[in-house]
Design a protein around this nucleic acid. Structure first.
Length: 728
DNA sequence: TCGATCATG
């Protein structure tokens, strides 16, 4: 604390300076806001929203639509009846950063007039009128408030990305809007119930009536204004889906980007990328380079090759430059190149390095996955190298297999990538394929809803009162088999009844923010008396890989794992890790501050080859679902040391994914007949027990099962008789 | 003997 004597004067000056800063900042914001392309059409936009219940806004990058439109609508009186303006984003960081920016522009602290809400974090209050949130969170809100009654306007931003949440949300909002306008006009909806005697399961799901929300008579709602914002040039899909809704176009502000193609097809993408990187480095003007690669392994090998080739350059440029070393190099060194990898599983302090400005005379080369396409915006990029490939996830609903395969990008993706070169000035994009090849690319990427397991979506929709999921008015219909299979597994889990309605258990499951198999496991565990342990298992199974094994320290990481490993399998191993981490944290917490204890926990993770980001996430999920099950009135009891009981409970929960050992040591999945191997990262990789349950089936070089535990086949007959019968 | 793109509640 400064002494009182010196204080009077300095406090005054600080006060004046702070006030001056505030005014200057406010003026600066006003100037910036006025200069945005969208500012020129403010009045027209507000009029359009007033005159149309649904509006499509196509806004190019840099138009300012995300930050400005909600402010225009607030000013235009759309919150006057007490309603609020909700804006959804596909990603959490976007929701947070945009909310902070808008709050600053309004000169208010976040959480008052302007706020945001994401999982684990609600920074809103009774005063909040402009609320940014993730699309997944709004879907969750709909479960508690099916008419989304507190919103007068909902803006779905980045709709062109077509995340699974956005697609479900669009269908839902269409229903909500219809129901709310009917509640005003007083039209009564006759909701017919069908009988389904003598029909097969498949026929029954076909014969259901379309379930839309019943207009509520007791309470009148204001009509819901719906705004769909997209960056794709083609607004037709959205407009048609919303019954020919009006679409308006808002100009963006981007610098021009020159596109270059190769003359002939490239056979070796890595080599072509390397040649291009050096060509840019040696022949082009200043500016950083962004290279799109498919995965961690490719990034690491390109990084290695760049440094190798740097060493082969003539004397004056022959320096291997990684960040902290550059200061020792002579400043007149002509060829200065720094490489920075970025991908999602990279520890965040290493990710942050890409944002440091390149030191004078140096050129940054950023080697990125598609994380740099939308999630992360790096300033200073003038050159983009795009080999035109991406690692994409696909899902086989028949077999329940996830695969990650390298495929070509879509035209929209290529455009998005090249746009990354034109944010700070005119740029250049080098596509490592021929122009004729570009013409043949698909216009846009396959929406996520066509590429993943739908049991969660189906469960959510049913919980929202939409029973006929097959005929639900999706903007793009998911594959029929994917829906049917999800319904089938929900039926086997007891979430859906024989007549295809949500059961009581199903309603309970829908309240829990985890995958249906996991929410069922929590309910089963409460009956077995091991919910305390299952909460931990589910939290640990819900996050990315907990173990971190860098190639150069394989032996060490293997030894670290040994201290947690259980001979019964990965589930008990994960439980051991969680307990060990929690014990370490609680002991630390007694003598240290929360912050210090968190920091020590991160150190503990590093020493034990555990991914601290994943563990943190698991601990967050754990506390959230613990709260949830307590609210639901489930008894949280522990089975203490009775691991047999816990394993029986695992069998009773995960019976849909079981496999039997074959004479050759491979495994045969009981339901699909698929032949798989236990993943080498599993503690059971060598032990090879007769019968296992597992949580994940992924196909890379082989079909592998991950998160595996040893069980007794007889348990399946006993605990899942609907699927398993005694063999003679 | 494996390497996982990106997200979300």
């Amino acid at each position: 604390m400064p002494s009182m004597a010196a204080n009077n004067f300095s406090r005054n000056t600080q006060y004046h300076q702070a006030k001056g800063d505030f005014l200057a900042r406010k003026q600066k914001y006003e100037q910036q806001r006025k200069n945005l392309p969208i500012a020129a059409v403010e009045r027209r936009l507000v009029e359009e929203v007033r005159n149309n219940d649904t509006l499509i806004i196509v806004g190019e990058t840099g138009s300012g639509k995300t930050t400005q439109l909600p402010q225009y609508l607030f000013k235009g009186g759309f919150c006057r009846d007490g309603g609020i303006i909700g804006i959804t984003q596909p990603r959490r960081v976007a929701a947070i950063t945009v909310a902070k920016r808008v709050a600053e522009e309004c000169g208010v602290p976040v959480g008052q007039k302007v706020g945001y809400a994401i999982r684990f974090e609600d920074v809103t209050s009774g005063e909040t009128k402009i609320k940014y949130m993730t699309d997944g969170l709004l879907l969750r809100e709909a479960l508690l408030d099916p008419y989304l009654s507190k919103y007068s306007v909902i803006i779905v931003d980045e709709a062109h990305e077509r995340t699974i949440h956005t697609d479900v949300l669009l269908g839902l909002l269409k229903n909500v809007q219809k129901a709310r306008s009917k509640s005003i006009n007083g039209v009564v909806n006759t909701d017919l119930n069908n009988s389904n005697n003598g029909h097969t399961f498949e026929e029954r799901i076909d014969n259901q009536n379309t379930g839309i929300l019943k207009p509520c008579q007791a309470k009148k709602y204001n009509p819901l204004k719906l705004i769909i914002m997209s960056a794709s040039l083609d607004a037709r899909v959205f407009s048609e889906y919303f019954g020919g809704a009006r679409a308006v176009h808002v100009q963006g502000r981007q610098f021009p980007v020159d596109i270059f193609y190769t003359h002939k097809p490239e056979t070796d993408c890595i080599d072509a990328a390397l040649i291009t990187i050096f060509q840019i480095h040696l022949e082009e003007g200043p500016g950083d380079v962004l290279v799109f690669l498919t995965g961690q392994e490719e990034i690491e090998s390109v990084e290695r090759l760049i440094h190798e080739r740097l060493r082969q350059l003539p004397e004056c440029s022959r320096k291997l430059l990684t960040f902290p070393i550059f200061s020792s190099l002579p400043l007149n060194c002509l060829r200065k190149l720094l490489t920075f990898p970025i991908f999602s599983s990279l520890p965040s302090e290493k990710q942050m390095k890409v944002f440091m400005p390149s030191p004078a005379g140096y050129r940054k080369v950023i080697l990125a996955t598609n994380i740099a396409e939308t999630s992360v915006t790096i300033p200073g990029i003038r050159y983009v190298v795009d080999p035109g490939l991406v690692k994409a996830r696909t899902y086989d609903p028949k077999m329940g297999v996830d695969s990650l395969i390298i495929v070509t990008t879509s035209k929209a993706q290529a455009l998005q990538r090249s746009g990354r070169a034109g944010r700070d000035g005119p740029g250049k994009c080098y596509r490592l394929y021929q122009e004729s090849f570009f013409e043949k690319l698909p216009d846009s990427t396959l929406p996520e809803i066509k590429r993943c397991d739908l049991s969660n979506v189906v469960l959510q929709l049913k919980a929202l009162g939409i029973d006929d999921v097959i005929n639900f008015d999706f903007i793009e219909k998911p594959d029929r088999t994917a829906v049917v299979n999800s319904l089938w597994s929900l039926y086997l889990l007891g979430a859906v009844t024989e007549d295809n309605k949500l059961s009581d258990v199903g309603h309970q499951m829908a309240r829990l923010p985890v995958d249906p198999v996991y929410s069922k496991a929590l309910i089963v565990a409460s009956q077995f008396g091991c919910l305390k342990e299952m909460l931990i298992c589910v939290a640990m199974l819900s996050v990315e890989s907990i173990f971190y094994a860098p190639r150069e320290k394989l032996e060490e990481s293997r030894n670290a794992l040994k201290s947690f490993a259980s001979p019964e399998g990965d589930h008990l191993t994960l439980l051991n890790v969680y307990h060990a981490a929690d014990e370490f944290f609680q002991k630390n917490r007694m003598v240290n501050s929360e912050e210090k204890a968190e920091k020590n926990l991160r150190k503990w993770c590093k020493d034990n080859f555990i991914n601290s980001r994943s563990l943190k996430h698991a601990r967050d999920i754990h506390s959230q679902i613990l709260r949830n099950v307590e609210q639901m009135g489930l008894r949280v009891t522990s089975c203490e040391d009775d691991m047999l009981l816990l394993r029986r409970c695992l069998a009773a929960s995960f019976f849909l994914k079981a496999a039997m050992k074959q004479p050759d040591g491979a495994y045969r999945v009981t339901l699909s007949g698929l032949i798989v191997q236990i993943h080498p990262s599993s503690v059971l990789f060598r032990a090879k027990p007769e019968c296992i349950i597992f949580n994940e089936l992924v196909h890379t070089n082989h079909s592998y099962v991950r998160n595996v535990s040893r069980i007794d086949y007889l348990w399946l007959i006993e605990l899942a008789p609907q699927l398993y019968a005694a063999q003679d």
